[in-house]
Amino acid sequence: MPNISREEVAHLARLARLAVTEDELDKFAGQLDVILQSVASVGEVAAQEIPPTSHAVPLRNVFRADEPRPGLSQQQALAGAPAVEEGRFRVPRILGEEA
């Protein structure tokens, strides 16, 4: 079934935000191929009429009251940040949607 090329690995890595190296592209292409072949057997199961299970327990309608709960202080929120400026998380320039 699957046959994962270097290009596909590169595409997946881009989607997953992984700056993989050239060596890794080769290595992962082979490994992903093996992994996906080994899991492809799920396709053998006749399951057309079977409903999918997204949750292991059959719970419904779990809601919270609309009441404020204490959160974090600004200092706590920013404590783990790689960079901070003016009470905000400082991040590298964003290549945005806007022109």
């Binding site: 400026e85 003016e86 998380f89 991040v91 590298p92 320039r93 964003i94 945005g96």
Partner: peptide, 19 residues
């Protein structure tokens, strides 16, 4: 967005996030 044209994302040097 900080740096570059005022408040615009384009040309900004870095950004500050408030959640």
């Amino acid at each position: 967005h900080v740096g570059g044209a005022t408040g615009r994302i384009h040309g900004a040097e870095h950004s500050l996030l408030d959640y």
